[in-house]
Design a protein around this nucleic acid. Sequence first.
DNA 1: TTGGGTCATGAATCCGGCA
DNA 2: TTGCCGGATTCATGACCCA
Lengths: 320, 320
Amino acid sequence: MSIRSKGRIISLAWPDRTEPRAKAFPIVKRLTEDRRGVLFVGDNLTVLDHLIAEKQTGASLIYLDPPFFTQRAHETMPRKGAASEVAFSDQWESLAHYLEAIAARLSRLRELLLPHGSLVLHVDTKTSHYVKVLADGIFGFDAFASEIVWRYRRWPSKTENFQRVHDVLLRYRKDPSIAPRWNQGYEALAASTLKTWGTRKQRAVVEEGHRKRSSSTEEESKGVPLGDVWDIGILAPVSKERTGYPSQKPEALLERLVNVLTDPDDLVLDPYAGSGTTLAVAHRLGRQFVGIDESAVAIATIEKRLAEKGVLLTQVPAGR
Amino acid sequence: MSIRSKGRIISLAWPDRTEPRAKAFPIVKRLTEDRRGVLFVGDNLTVLDHLIAEKQTGASLIYLDPPFFTQRAHETMPRKGAASEVAFSDQWESLAHYLEAIAARLSRLRELLLPHGSLVLHVDTKTSHYVKVLADGIFGFDAFASEIVWRYRRWPSKTENFQRVHDVLLRYRKDPSIAPRWNQGYEALAASTLKTWGTRKQRAVVEEGHRKRSSSTEEESKGVPLGDVWDIGILAPVSKERTGYPSQKPEALLERLVNVLTDPDDLVLDPYAGSGTTLAVAHRLGRQFVGIDESAVAIATIEKRLAEKGVLLTQVPAGR
DNA sequence: TTGGGTCATGAATCCGGCA
DNA sequence: TTGCCGGATTCATGACCCA
C-alpha cells in the first residue's frame, strides 16, 4: 500500500508555503559531568542544524512534545504563593505557520535518527491529523508505525460532548526495511482471560489443518504484548513528580517509550525538553540524552530537576 | 480557532481530482410495516441524491462505517461448512480514489443532517488522518466535535510494534452554533476513585477563593461523564450477535451513540448498513432508521436479522 | 466452569510481470 | 532465460469472550 500508487501523491497544501527562519539566538551548551547528557539552550531549529553539521552520533529515540496550537501563552504553576510566569508561547499567526514550523523540525530530526530508530511525536487530537499527513510526507507513508493513544483520567467538565480524555502519539521509523530497536513490553492480561485461563500461556491445538481447541500450558504468561492504547494517569496536582512547568508529562509515559524503543547507552533526543521529563527518565534508565529548549524557565526547571538527582550541568563552548 | 485564519486555507491536494460517478443500478426501496424503518438497495451515492431531491426529513444521527482501504475483498464467515462469498470489495485504484469516494458521500450526508444532528465516521488508524482533513473541509474545522477511540481486545500477533487495538470514530456536528442533541451518558467510576470516595458524589469546597478540600456528599454518583475512549469488546467468534458478515460492529458501540446523540423517534441513517447493526439498534431503542447498502449479501443479512426481531420489510416503489 | 472458535493480524511465501 | 520486485495469497498465531 502506498500513497503514491498511480503517481497520485496526496499532500497538504496551502498558499504561500514558506520555510520558517530560526531565531537568531546564540546557542549555549551544557554538559553533565559524565558527558552522557547534553542540554542546549536556544531555538531548536538552530541547534538541530548545528548537530547535523557537527555529524553528531544519531539518536535511537526522538521524542517531541511541541506546542499544541492552543493559541495561548502557557504559564508555570508555582507551588506556593509565588507569581506565575510565561513558560512558553503557543500563539501562531495561523495553522499554516504552525505546520511549517513543525515540518522544518521534523525533516531535521529525521536526519539525526539512526536507521533502527524511532521518532515519537506527541500531538493534540484536534491537529494530529494535519501533522500526520505532513509527517507522512517527510518520513513516508510506510514509515508510520503506530498511533498510540494515551488515555488518562481527569476531573470531568460540564460540556455537551464526550469528555476529551486522550492524547495521541505518532510513531515513525527512520527505515521500515530495517529491524527496529525493540524490547517487547507486556501488560496485564484482561480480567476475562485471567478468570478462564489463569496466568498460564495457552497453546493452540491444530488437527487436520483446523484449529480444534486451546489448552493451557505449564509456561507462565508474561502478559499480553503492549498495545497502542495506554492507560496512564496524569500527574496529580500534588504529585511529588510535579515541577510546576505547564504541560508536564508523566514519567511513566516516557518510561514505556524509552524501555521498549532503546537499549541502555542509546541516545534519546528531545528538542522540546520543557520540564525535562524525557531527560530525567533517559538518565534514570541509563540512556544518553540530548535536550533542547529555548525557554529560560524550562532550562531552570530542568537544571533543578536533574540536580535533585545529583546530575550537574556545566556550560561548555558549543561545538564540543 | 480556524484553519482559515489569515486566509490560508489548508486542504488535501492531489493531481487530477475528480468527482466519482454513482453506479447506474436502479434503487430498490423496502419499508417496515410500521413505516418507521427504510432499507434502500443500491449505490448509496444515488440513494443520497434521491433522498436530497425528495426533501426527506433529516437525520439526527448519521453513522457510517465505510470500507477501510484494506485493498482486499471481504468475505462472509458462515457458521458451518457453507461456502463463503464476497460481502463487499475494498479495493481501490489509489488512496486518492478512495478519498474522492468518501468526500462525495460526506458532502451529501451533511445535507441530510438536522441542525442539531451529528455524523459519526468510523475510520481506520492508518487513513483516519487523511479522512479528517477531508471532512474538515466539508463540515468545517469548528464542526469537529470528538475523536472517539474504540479500544478493544483481540488475539495478539507477533510483531515488533505496539499491537493495534483501537479504531477511531470522528464526530462532526452539522451546526456548532446550535445546541446539539445530547443525553449525557455515564460510565463506572475508576477503581481508585471508588476506593477513596465510594459511590457518593464529591463536592469541591472553596474557601477564600482557593480550593481547600473535597468532601463526599449524600448524593449517589451516576458515574463519570462518558469520555472519548471507549472500552468495548469485539464480538466473540461464537457470539449469538454474530451474523457472519465481515467487519460487523458490536451493538454496544452503536447503542452508546444512539442513546447519547438521539431522542426516541429521531431518525438514524446508515449509508453503509452492512450487517445492519445500526438499524437493529435504532429499532430496538425506538428510533426511526434509514439504511442503504449495495451488497446483496448485506441486504439478505439485514432482512434476516430484522426478521428475527419480528420486523418485516416489504418492497415499495422508490419515491414514497 | 470449561473449552470452542476465531481474526478489516502480520510474517512468510508464492507467483507473475517486467527488464 | 533468469532474477528482481511488489502485490497477493496462505499460514502461524494465542488471548479473548460467549455459550
